[in-house]
Amino acid sequence: MNMHVQAAEAAVSISNLSKTYDTGFEALKNVSLDIRKGEIFALLGPNGAGKTTLIGTVCGLVNPTSGQILVGGHDVVADFRKSRALIGLVPQELTGDRFETVWATVSFTRGLFGKPRNDAVIEKILKDLSLWDKRNEKLITLSGGMKRRVLIAKALSHEPEILFLDEPTAGVDVELRRDMWRVVRELRERGVTIILTTHYIEEAEEMADRIGVISKGEIILVEEKTELMTKLGKKDLTIQLQEPIATLPATLTAIGLRLNGDGTELIHTYDSQADRTGIATLMAAVSAEGLSVKDLSTSQSSLEDIFIGLLRDRA
């Protein structure tokens, strides 16, 4: 497949993107990333990893130092009109024209993105985000959660094909989070591509189709969420004993078993993707020591554990 075909199929195609700020800070180092059409992509990374800079370069807020970004096949620098018209951006910070009404500010964004007035579209968006009752209120009178909804409504006002959500749920209550994910799912069903940044891993785990991990300006991993979790997931095998024991026999310590606090459980952490997990050997050793087993359970580590493990490996 040649490069052009690939680029046309991707909603966003980033190649060899670097950004060095005037201060000399290298925010992005040779980043290459393709976002597929219609997927929910979560960009995970600690604060200062380069998430917002990456979004900024795609959306036109930050000038790239080198590299190329195509949005819907259009270069974001040479063909900015076409690329930017496709994008809706919900910024991280709660900003807004304090003295404007909800209706006016959302309609303003639609115009800014080159779309003619369409009250039905705005009405639908405001209703979806439970903002309809507030449409004639000034932004200054709204709570933080409501302002966040307004920012989302603004980003959707011109019916974008690609939606960027930069830390959408930072400081947001449960209700709004639920509303927001409902809207995001509906958008995805309509074929909108969604890219969100977060450091709440459970959010990525719940929502995303694919996950990219960024750290210190580099994309260190891009993976299907489910694959990522099975592939990198460590499992804990917990063996419940009939009778508690005071100390763990030396033969069992040697093969990597640990004893829990009250002496009722043996725990073994293993790599579930390894060819030989060693569970059979383990069980044999346990019965050889004359311990009787009451129950067995395994648990998969969460994305959070994977994430922390990844970052630790890089450090």
Binding site: G60, G96, F113, K154
Partner: peptide
């Protein structure tokens, strides 16, 4: 106010 992001990200 920070709302400049909108103008910078718009196809204008």
């Amino acid at each position: 106010a920070g709302t400049i992001y909108e103008i910078l990200s718009a196809p204008i």
